[in-house]
Structures are given as C-alpha cells and as structure tokens.
C-alpha cells in the first residue's frame, strides 16, 4: 500500500462546535486516509458526524484537534484545489443559469470564461442536462439540480470528489439516477469518491463503508475492492 497516492490524510482529527454547556463534539479522534481511486461511503445516523468528516476532508472546515493533510493534491491558499464537492440540498447559485453554475469553479480557479463555458457544456452533456443549459436552478427538478451539481464537479475534473448526502432530498428512483451519474463521473475523470449517506442503497454501491458513530469512525465494512484505510 506504500506506493499508493494518499489524497487525504486525517490524523487524530476532531471537530467541536460551540463552547461550555452547548459544546457538541461532531468528530473525535478520527484517523484515516483516502487513496486515489477509492470509492468510500461514510454511513451513520443523523448527527453521527459523517457530514463534518466529509467537510474536514475537503478543507471546508478546520479541525479543532489533529491534522488533515492532502499529500497528493494541489493546494491553493491553504486549501486543496483539486477537490470537488457535491453538497446536500440546493447548492446551485439561483442567480446563475445552469451553465454558469457549472463553469463557476473553473472561472474561480483561473480558467478563461470561454473555456470554462465549453467544459461546462461537455459536462452537462455527460449528465444529460444539455437541454437545461440555459435554465435557472428554480426551473430544475431536485434530481436535475443534483445532476447539475455533479456536472459542476465533472467540469473541474478534480482528483477527489466529496458528496455530502447527495440524494438526501430525492425520491428513491431519482436518487438512483443521481448516483449513477455520480459514479459515471468519477469513473470518467478517475477521481476518488467519498460519499456521506444514510441510505443503504447508496452505501451498498460503493466499495468501502466507513461507519461513523457518535463522532468516531468505526471499523470499515468492506464491500468490494480496496478502499481507503483506517
């Protein structure tokens, strides 16, 4: 395993919210690594800390204890620049159309507007949303919105895709379609995937399941080939 690329390395990481009597320990003493090509589902009950762990892996939150590092990823201003995130719920900017939403991370990373738009159109075609390219998020269904969010990840082609409950607000059939799109996307760009979910159907389709319980990471329930390590 020593020759594998380590994308995320969590070392005894903890995250605490609030203070005094209102202190909430979301994540405590988690050590794990995400390797290139991993397909990991982080499962657990609501409030178990799985979303927080995903956010810590993406550099969206700062750990209260321990250390998170991204040995094999490009860094930009202290944050990993090679990570795509699919958020829970509505994450498209309502004031931008679908193409502009998908192109936004590229523009933010310095890609020209024209190139970003071209890559966005390709990504939208991949998730079968070309017809909605000029629609605004308000005009999309829940499934279409999440597929657009996945296209946003695809367009940027990151090395690591983090998805926080990507199907949490979708019906079963739509959730399946979105997951298909997500898996096809990471396959297409060769990225590692970490999905937090409480949906067993989602978890079963990934190779490794990490269970979060009361903020701590329990033994993985491996379902397929290799997938991360604790």
């Amino acid at each position: 395993m020593t020759g594998e690329r380590v994308l995320v390395d969590c070392d005894d990481v903890g995250r605490v919210y609030g203070s005094g009597s209102t202190t909430v320990v979301a994540v405590s003493g988690v050590s794990c690594q995400v390797l290139a090509g991993d397909r990991i589902a982080v499962v657990g009950r609501s409030g178990s800390g799985k979303s927080t762990l995903v956010h810590l892996m993406g550099g969206l939150e700062t750990p209260s204890a321990g250390r998170v590092s991204w040995p094999a990823l490009r860094m930009r201003r202290g944050r990993p620049d090679d990570v795509g995130v699919v958020f829970q719920g509505l994450s498209l900017l309502p004031a931008l159309d679908v193409t502009e939403n998908v192109a936004l991370p590229l523009v933010l990373s310095g890609v020209s507007q024209e190139e970003a738009t071209e890559r966005a159109m390709v990504a939208l075609a991949a998730v079968r949303l070309t017809a909605q390219a000029r629609a605004v998020p308000e005009e999309l269904s829940g499934g279409q919105s999440q597929r657009a969010a996945i296209a946003r990840v695809l367009a940027a082609a990151p090395a690591l895709v983090l998805a926080d409950e990507p199907t949490g607000q979708l019906d079963h059939e739509t959730a399946r379609t979105v997951l298909d799109a997500l898996l096809q996307t990471v396959d297409r760009i060769g990225a590692a995937l970490v999905v937090s979910t409480h949906d067993p159907m989602i978890a079963e389709r990934l190779q490794v399941q990490w269970e979060m319980r009361d903020g701590q990471l329990r033994a993985p329930a491996q379902t397929g080939a290799a997938g991360g390590r604790q």
Partner: peptide
C-alpha cells in the same frame, strides 16, 4: 456556496 467552491 461560492466560498465552498474555492473562491478567494
């Protein structure tokens, strides 16, 4: 969202 997408 913009910030989470990596905006400086």
């Amino acid at each position: 969202v913009v910030r989470a997408l990596g905006a400086t």
